[in-house]
Every structure is written in structure tokens, then in C-alpha cells.
Design a protein around this nucleic acid. Sequence first.
RNA 1: GCCCCCAUCGACUAGCGGUCCAGGUCACGGCCCUUUCAAGGCCGCAGCACGGGUUCGAAUCCCGUUGGGGGCACCA
Length: 420
Amino acid sequence: MSVPPHVTTRMAPSPTGLLHIGGVRTFLFNYLFARQHGGQNRLRIENTDTGREVAAAVEQIQESLRWIGIEWDGAITFQLERMDDCRRVAEQLVAEGKAYEDEGAIRFRMPNEGVTAWDDAVRGRVEVANETIEDLVLVRSDGRPTYNFASPLEDVWDGITHVIRGEDHISNTPKQIRIIEAIGGAVPVYAHVPSIFGEDGKKLSKRHGATGVEEFRAAGYLAPALMNFLALLGWAPDGETTIMSRDELVERFDLARVSSSPARFDYAKLDWMNGVYLRALSPDEFAQALVDYLREQGYDWDEARVRAAAPLVQEKIATLGEFPGFAGFLFHDVEPVALDGGADVVAAARAALAELEPFEAASIEAALRAVLERLGLKPRQGFAPIRVAITGSKVSPGLFESIELLGRETTLRRLSASGG
RNA sequence: GCCCCCAUCGACUAGCGGUCCAGGUCACGGCCCUUUCAAGGCCGCAGCACGGGUUCGAAUCCCGUUGGGGGCACCA
């Protein structure tokens, strides 16, 4: 596909609720394509309404985009502000006989013969018989332009060269092409990207899990991981490469390689990928990410201790959101767990740790292993009761490092509470 | 009902007529490592929706069927 000199794409969300992850994937493709060609990526709000809710949603959209790392160029435009211009064009069309009034509304005259076709950048040629397209309403009887009129007009006004949008717009495309031709505008290249479904093949919705960008953020996903994952939904550079930075994505993205068939959102794979990104962080970066995340989520846990705990969990959690559940015992008391057996080890462990010097992971391990050996217990069975007593769970970060971090006093107290 | 789009392992995909008894990743199963859980290493399971063509040769091209999805608004 030949690409015109000044590529301009656009992201056109409507300001309703949280920014949906499916829409973000489409926006990402716009962004990657524009950046790759050194072009512009515009942000246009398709609102036909005004109000506090809209203002809040617009702010939310920007915040979500900023967080995940999808940039836009120039000022944000609002569809609502161009309603007058749309009306003027409609009147002009009526004057030219290309549109007509109908019960107070203005309708576009669609041809009744022939076909309207375009070469879709991801699907190839698409043809629609004109007789199947009705004369669509351009301006409602109350004076407001419709989406199918305003959107193509804005594409022309903004010099959009590539309209990359969801496949649910395919049937709107012939109508919009006709309108653009009627006003003598340049018809952009259209690229309809496949939808994203939930794991059951149905439209991605709440019951599948998180759907809003902010929800993924709150769940502790890293922005680069989410972006990487999203990029691979409906596109692949070669079938081998899976982990790619934003720069690589920009460099390798290719509209022609975008799949035509819908993709399912695989939460398990996202978790895996997020874990890969988490582990790839340097210890300092990981600790910082953890600190920032916890603060954002409203935890007031001691920062120094969070940083100290970070190395114990970096290889064990897939999302930052797992940290509180996994390492919370380092920050708050745990419920003494009733043990069925194991009281002996716990008591022996308490005795061994009471006077231990220095109170460090290595010496703690040595002391505890000595206890187990004395009692003739396998590590597997011997450490379990101690772990439960100290962490309140059968699953935890490394026992010895955890005990060191917890300190002698707390450790002994928990051991005692569990029958030691 | 009419129009349009789609169809490779459970999932994301590579494949664009021979290099494919179909490759990679996630998930799943097994083994190793191991203080739990992970991580890591090794091995494995599993797919071209179906039926016709075209061709010396088809996962790849064409037609049909079936199955999904979207649209047919004075919604966006």
C-alpha cells in the first residue's frame, strides 16, 4: 500500500464511561501507524452533548491514554463544536440537489444503482450495492447532525488520511464515502480492524473481567505490558516475536498484517506477559513500581519496608495487585491459624530463634534446618507449620527472608500465638 | 428478512500453491530444580469447520454449506 506524504490518523472516542479496552486497541493501531510514518494522530471527541459528565469523561479518556502511553497530536476537537459547520454543508448539499428535506430533516440522496467500494487496508476490496443503502439522515429535524454525517466531514476537515476503526463501522463506510465525494473531499484510506471478544466469543463485557483501562491499572498491570498484549490482538509481526517495546511496536507495526478475524481477550496470557515485564524490571524499578502502585491504591504501608519486601516477591507475582494478598503479613497482623499437628516444630523454631544472632536469612535458615533435622522432619513437612504460623498462609515469599524482614519480636509473637 | 465481514491447536497467531505428516507463545499435562508459591529447564498434548472444484501439487485460489460477528435508526 502506498502511503501519502502526511499521514494523519484519528482516535474518536465517545465520552461515555471508562475507556474500553477494545477501543484502546484500535487507538493503539492508529498511534503506531501514525508514529511509524512520522505523521499525526488526532484525538477527537464524538460528543453530541455537553455537560459535566462529558467533561469528566474527556478528562478520564486523556488520563487513560496518557497512562498506557498512547499519544495524540494537536488540540482535542469536539464534534459538538462543529455542528454549525455541518449544518451549513447540509444546506449547500440541498442547494446542489444532492440532499433534500424530509419532514424537517435533511436526507442525503444515495444513488440507486451501481456499487460503492473501497480498498480496505486490512480486508482488501469491499463492495456494497448502492440499492441496499438508504437515503440517510444528515441533519435531524431538531437541527443536530447525525454521526454518519459529522464524522466523515470532520475527517475531511482534519485532513485525515487513514481512518483506522472497528469493524462495526464497515457498513457505515459506503455512506461516508458518498458524503465525502459529494462535498469534493479527499476520501481517506479505510482500515477496519477486528473486534475483541471475551473468552466465550461474545462481546467483551464486565462479566469477562476488567474492560476499562483504569481497571487494568488498578489491578496492577504495567502499561507497557498491556500495550504489548493489546498490539498482539489481531496483529503479529512474524509469529515468533511476542515481547516488544513501544519503539519496536512502532517500528514493526503493519496494517496489512492486521488480521481480519476477531480475537479473544485472553486474561491468562495478559497475566503471563505482565509477569514477564515485572521480572524484567531492575530491582529498583520494581520496588518503585510497587511503591507507586500501593500509594495509588490507597495503602499507607511503610515505604522502606515495601522496598525491602520487593525483592522477595518480584519473581512470584504476575501483577502488582497480588502484592497485598501475598506479602500483606509483613505489614499487618495475621490470624493465628489452628494447626493440626506441627506444634512441636513451631515451639522448637521459637526456641531456636529466640536468641539467634545475627537475625538474618542465612543464619535463620541454618537454625531452622538444624531444628528440622533434630526432629527428623523433611523440609517440606517441617517448614509448613512455621510458614503458616508466621505468614498466615501456606503460600508465601521465601520463609527465611520473610522472617528476617519481620524481625525477631514479631516472629516470636506469631510463633507463640500458634502454639509455640 | 436483507446487506456486509469472518473461519489454522482450548486461546493469540505464523503460513500468502510445493521448503508444512503445519511453526511460535499462553493455557494444560509430565519430569527436573525446590522451604511453599512462583520463576527457570526439559518433554508432551492439541489445529487447517465441512463439501465441491482449479492445479502435477491447496491450510494457502474459486464456489457452496455450516457456524460466528456486525449493520439495516432523526444512536455513536
